[in-house]
């Protein structure tokens, strides 16, 4: 589904991703772990199309298509979803209006009929309940004044509404207490299916107890320095990233 080859990206004249290779197939769950500043979010943002980052080399294929040539909205319509590490606050735009526009622009692109206000409310009612969110969240401006945990839940709620094929979750677990973490993990697991893939970025192995990955990769200094099965996460939890970082040659 997703093939990343020798991806280099920089921002403000500084190289952040220094040759990433990664292959994700439909149905798989991959986890990316790594120390602060190693480039995890940069990778996630580049995949979603953030123009702050310049891709200087390499390519990314999504369903065989050149992902990097697509605009962010085209990627979303093609089924890519990024749950932001730091969801953006947008005062003045209600969650409801925002999300209905998003759902409908994606449905339109897929040749589906747009959801009217009534249907949208019905569908979203169910998903909010699942995530333990109060329906009043819909009326509030997007993320404005939300607590950290509420923002993360709101990201997962959006994912549930948009039904992506490739979901990238950037530190969705950070700042969540254990109950919230379980709810979020349930929400993610409910999405797992043979034709979907999930890429989880996290610092903590804790999340991976609930969203069990097929593969774990360690990102350090802009490169994937180690890949393995889910046991790698446990190993990292015990030993930390020391050693791994230093194996990166300059």
């Amino acid at each position: 589904m997703l093939t990343i080859k020798n991806l280099h990206a920089s921002a403000a004249g500084r190289e952040i991703l220094r040759g990433i290779d990664l292959e994700i197939k439909a149905g798989e769950v991959h986890a990316i772990m790594g120390p602060n500043g190693s480039g995890k979010s940069t990778l996630a943002q580049v995949l979603a199309g953030r123009d702050l980052y310049t891709v200087t080399a390499g390519k990314v294929l999504y369903d065989g298509n050149d992902l990097l040539a697509m605009k962010p909205e085209e990627r979303a319509r093609a089924g890519i979803f990024l749950a932001f590490q730091y969801p953006v606050e947008i005062p003045g735009v209600s969650n409801l209006y925002f999300l209905r526009s998003a759902v409908n622009s994606i449905r339109k692109a897929r040749g589906l009929e747009e959801l009217d206000a009534f249907d949208f409310l019905q569908v979203s009612d169910g998903k909010m309940k699942l995530l333990g969110m109060d329906p009043s969240f819909r009326e509030r401006p997007v993320n404005a004044g939300f607590s950290g945990g509420e923002k993360k839940r709101n990201e997962i709620f959006q994912m549930a509404m948009l039904e992506p094929r490739l979901a990238i979750l950037d530190e969705t677990d950070s700042g969540l207490d254990i109950d919230a973490l379980k709810t979020v993990a349930d929400g993610v697991n409910a999405m797992r299916s043979p034709d979907r893939a999930i890429l989880v970025v996290t610092h903590y192995q804790r999340l991976l107890n609930y969203i069990v990955p097929d593969f774990v990769h360690v990102l350090a200094n802009g490169r994937i320095v180690k890949s393995g099965r889910k046991e790698l996460a446990l190993e990292l939890e015990e030993k930390g990233y020391v050693g791994l970082e230093t194996t990166v040659a300059y």
Partner: peptide
């Protein structure tokens, strides 16, 4: 806010609609 624009677009909303949404929010006050 370029971050807000990107956030909206990353949800499938076209760039012009995203822009209008933010302008409209600004006027909303």
């Amino acid at each position: 806010d370029p971050e807000a624009l990107f956030y909206l677009r990353s949800r499938g909303i076209g760039s012009e609609d995203a822009r209008n949404m933010l302008v409209y929010a600004f006027a909303g006050d």
